[in-house]
Amino acid sequence: MSVQVKVPTQLRTLTDGASEVSGTGGDVGSLIKDLDASHPGLGERLLDDSGQLRRFVNVYVNDEDVRFLDGLGTTLPEGAQVSIIPAVAGG
Protein backbone atom coordinates (compact mmCIF):
# COMPACT_ATOMS: atom_id res chain seq x y z
CA MET A 1 0.00 0.00 0.00
CA SER A 2 1.24 3.48 -0.78
CA VAL A 3 0.91 5.87 2.13
CA GLN A 4 1.98 9.37 3.07
CA VAL A 5 4.15 9.73 6.16
CA LYS A 6 4.54 12.91 8.20
CA VAL A 7 8.11 13.25 9.39
CA PRO A 8 9.00 15.13 12.59
CA THR A 9 11.73 17.77 12.52
CA GLN A 10 14.09 15.44 14.36
CA LEU A 11 14.17 13.07 11.36
CA ARG A 12 14.22 15.55 8.53
CA THR A 13 17.98 15.43 8.17
CA LEU A 14 17.31 11.95 6.78
CA THR A 15 14.62 13.08 4.37
CA ASP A 16 16.44 16.03 2.82
CA GLY A 17 14.32 18.34 4.92
CA ALA A 18 11.01 16.92 3.69
CA SER A 19 8.20 17.07 6.25
CA GLU A 20 6.23 14.43 4.40
CA VAL A 21 7.42 11.43 2.38
CA SER A 22 5.80 8.53 0.56
CA GLY A 23 6.29 4.92 1.48
CA THR A 24 4.85 1.49 0.87
CA GLY A 25 4.05 -1.45 3.09
CA GLY A 26 1.24 -3.71 4.15
CA ASP A 27 1.79 -2.84 7.78
CA VAL A 28 3.70 -0.35 9.90
CA GLY A 29 6.71 -2.63 10.30
CA SER A 30 7.16 -3.14 6.58
CA LEU A 31 6.57 0.56 5.98
CA ILE A 32 9.47 1.39 8.30
CA LYS A 33 11.67 -1.06 6.39
CA ASP A 34 10.69 0.64 3.16
CA LEU A 35 11.37 4.07 4.59
CA ASP A 36 14.75 2.90 5.85
CA ALA A 37 15.62 1.73 2.33
CA SER A 38 14.79 5.08 0.79
CA HIS A 39 16.05 7.14 3.73
CA PRO A 40 18.92 5.14 5.24
CA GLY A 41 19.21 5.40 8.98
CA LEU A 42 15.57 6.12 9.61
CA GLY A 43 14.88 2.58 10.82
CA GLU A 44 17.34 2.64 13.69
CA ARG A 45 15.99 5.98 14.81
CA LEU A 46 12.51 4.53 15.17
CA LEU A 47 13.24 1.00 16.35
CA ASP A 48 15.30 -0.20 19.28
CA ASP A 49 17.80 -3.07 19.23
CA SER A 50 15.03 -5.62 19.59
CA GLY A 51 13.18 -4.25 16.60
CA GLN A 52 10.38 -2.67 18.61
CA LEU A 53 9.26 0.94 18.41
CA ARG A 54 11.41 3.07 20.67
CA ARG A 55 9.73 4.05 23.92
CA PHE A 56 9.42 7.71 23.01
CA VAL A 57 8.33 7.27 19.40
CA ASN A 58 4.64 7.50 18.67
CA VAL A 59 3.29 6.32 15.32
CA TYR A 60 -0.24 7.15 14.27
CA VAL A 61 -2.23 5.61 11.43
CA ASN A 62 -5.14 7.82 10.45
CA ASP A 63 -4.98 9.61 13.82
CA GLU A 64 -4.90 6.43 15.91
CA ASP A 65 -1.84 5.51 17.98
CA VAL A 66 -0.62 2.12 16.72
CA ARG A 67 -0.21 1.05 20.35
CA PHE A 68 -4.00 0.91 20.44
CA LEU A 69 -3.98 -1.14 17.26
CA ASP A 70 -1.52 -3.90 16.44
CA GLY A 71 1.72 -2.00 16.93
CA LEU A 72 4.16 -2.67 14.12
CA GLY A 73 1.68 -5.21 12.77
CA THR A 74 -0.98 -2.55 12.22
CA THR A 75 -2.22 -2.89 8.66
CA LEU A 76 -2.14 0.11 6.37
CA PRO A 77 -5.15 0.83 4.19
CA GLU A 78 -4.43 2.35 0.79
CA GLY A 79 -3.88 6.08 1.12
CA ALA A 80 -3.47 5.97 4.88
CA GLN A 81 -1.93 8.97 6.61
CA VAL A 82 0.89 7.94 8.90
CA SER A 83 2.40 10.37 11.41
CA ILE A 84 5.60 9.88 13.37
CA ILE A 85 5.61 12.07 16.46
CA PRO A 86 7.91 12.19 19.47
CA ALA A 87 6.24 11.68 22.82
CA VAL A 88 5.71 14.94 24.68
CA ALA A 89 4.90 15.66 28.28
CA GLY A 90 1.63 17.07 29.30
CA GLY A 91 -0.31 19.37 31.48
Binding site: P8, R45, R55, F56, P86, A87, V88, A89
Partner: peptide, 20 residues
Protein backbone atom coordinates in the same frame (compact mmCIF):
# COMPACT_ATOMS: atom_id res chain seq x y z
CA UNK B 1 17.86 7.87 27.60
CA UNK B 2 21.22 7.85 25.81
CA UNK B 3 23.02 10.73 27.55
CA UNK B 4 23.79 12.63 24.34
CA UNK B 5 24.46 16.27 25.12
CA UNK B 6 22.96 19.32 23.42
CA UNK B 7 23.49 23.05 23.74
CA UNK B 8 20.85 25.29 25.30
CA UNK B 9 18.12 25.52 22.65
CA UNK B 10 14.35 25.19 22.24
CA UNK B 11 14.57 21.45 21.79
CA UNK B 12 12.89 18.71 23.79
CA UNK B 13 13.75 15.45 22.09
CA UNK B 14 17.02 13.66 21.44
CA UNK B 15 17.66 13.63 17.73
CA UNK B 16 19.04 10.15 17.90
CA UNK B 17 16.79 8.12 20.19
CA UNK B 18 13.80 10.44 20.72
CA UNK B 19 14.42 10.38 24.46
CA UNK B 20 13.37 13.45 26.46
Amino acid sequence: ECGKEYPIAPQHVCEFCFGP
